[in-house]
Amino acid sequence: MTEDEAPSRKSGADGLPEVIDQVALARLYGEPLFALPQDLYIPPDALEIFLEAFEGPLDLLLYLIRKQNFNILDIPMLKVTQQYLSYVDEIRSRNLELAAEYLLMAAMLIEIKSRMLLPPKKQEGETEPEDPRAELVRRLLEYEQMKLASQRLNTVPQYGRDFLRAQVYIEQSLQPRFPDVELVDLQDAWRDILKRAKLVQHHKITREELSVREYMSNVLKTLQGRRFVEFEELFQPEKGGTVLVVTFIALLELAKETLIEITQAEAFAPIYVRLAYTPV
Rank of each mutant, 00 (worst) to 15 (best):
T206V: 15
Y169R: 02
I65V: 15
V181T: 00
L223F: 05
L223N: 07
V19Y: 09
E31W: 08
L118M: 14
A197F: 01
K256R: 03
E266W: 02
V212Y: 06
L73R: 15
E48K: 10
R139T: 00
K147C: 09
R177N: 00
I170T: 13
Q201M: 13
A24D: 12
F231T: 02
S8Y: 11
L183F: 06
A107K: 03
A106D: 11
I193P: 01
E233G: 03
P157K: 13
A6D: 07
L136K: 10
M105L: 13
D14L: 04
D180L: 11
E233K: 07
S8A: 09
V181S: 00
M1L: 04
P32D: 13
L62I: 00
A250V: 02
D192N: 13
V229A: 06
Q83H: 10
I91F: 07
E126P: 01
R115C: 01
I42P: 06
Y102D: 01
L78T: 09
V88Q: 07
E18K: 09
Y41F: 14
I20Y: 03
Q187R: 11
F70V: 05
R165S: 08
M216S: 12
E124G: 09
E126F: 12
I170E: 15
Y143K: 08
G30S: 03
Y87F: 13
D14C: 02
Y143G: 11
R115D: 02
E230F: 04
M108N: 13
S173A: 14
V88G: 08
P176K: 08
F231H: 08
L61H: 05
T2W: 00
K122N: 09
T247N: 04
Q22I: 08
Y41G: 07
I262M: 05
D4I: 01
A35Q: 05
F268H: 12
K67Q: 04
N218P: 00
Q83Y: 05
I72Y: 07
L109R: 02
P44W: 01
A6G: 06
A250C: 01
V168F: 12
V19H: 02
V168Q: 07
E208P: 02
V245A: 10
I75S: 08
V137H: 12
Q68R: 13
L199E: 15
P279C: 11
S217I: 07
V273N: 01
M116G: 10
M146N: 15
L140R: 08
R213S: 08
T242V: 10
K67M: 04
D180Q: 11
L47Y: 08
Q145D: 10
E135F: 12
Y215F: 04
L96Q: 15
Q236H: 14
Y143T: 08
L186F: 12
L251D: 07
F235S: 04
P32K: 09
T155M: 07
F235M: 08
P37G: 00
F178V: 09
